[in-house]
């Protein structure tokens, strides 16, 4: 891990592979959080007043 990291160079953008992976993981996590079903979400027992 102490070897210099590979870099991705695109136009004026230069980013290390570890940083790119980290940002990729963040975006992936956010998208997953948006789409993945939330577990243990039981149906309510008590209908609220706004329910018809």
């Amino acid at each position: 891990m102490d070897q210099p990291a590979p870099y991705v160079h695109w136009s004026f953008i230069l980013i290390s592979l570890p940083n790119l992976v980290l940002i990729g993981v963040m975006i992936l996590l956010f998208v997953l959080a948006l789409f993945a079903p939330f577990p243990g979400h039981r149906r309510s027992q008590r209908p609220g007043r706004r329910q018809p």
């Binding site: 997953l32 959080a33 948006l34 939330f38 979400h41 309510s44």
Partner: peptide, 11 residues
């Protein structure tokens, strides 16, 4: 509230 049901709330 029942609408609290997304992984976004867990961050």
């Amino acid at each position: 509230p029942y609408y609290v049901g997304s992984w976004v709330y867990v961050f």
